[in-house]
């Protein structure tokens, strides 16, 4: 597979390390009343869709950026690549 890195252009997927569902960037609040349950869902339960999947890839053999790749799990077609940090900043709950 080839991942089109936002800065570095198309790179072989072998340069990356895969982590999993991009929802892993949304770590729950440790002080929530149901923190134990929230962390259980966060860490262990997955949608695991057959189709579009937003997922985390780490450019370990490159610039060490974490990317969020939108990829179809049936066809492997990649439709979007973003910096995870940008997404995480944009998705921060407004304080």
């Amino acid at each position: 597979m080839i991942i089109n890195h936002p800065l570095l252009g198309p790179r072989d997927a072998a340069e990356f390390v895969y982590k999993g569902d991009a929802s892993l960037i949304n770590r729950p609040n440790w002080q929530a009343d149901d923190a134990a349950e929230l962390f259980h869902e966060y860490l262990y339960l997955r949608d695991n869709p057959a189709g579009q999947h937003r997922e985390l890839w780490y450019h370990e053999q490159g610039d060490r950026s974490w990317l969020i790749v939108t990829r179809n799990t049936l066809t492997h077609e990649i439709s979007n690549v973003e910096f995870a940090r940008d997404v995480a900043l944009a998705e921060r709950p407004k304080k």
Binding site: M1, D12, A13, Y18, D21, A50, H53, T73, L74
Partner: peptide, 11 residues
């Protein structure tokens, strides 16, 4: 990587 395709890649 997550996939439902019954095929893999070269690496």
């Amino acid at each position: 990587y997550n996939t439902y395709a019954q095929r893999g890649n070269l690496p």
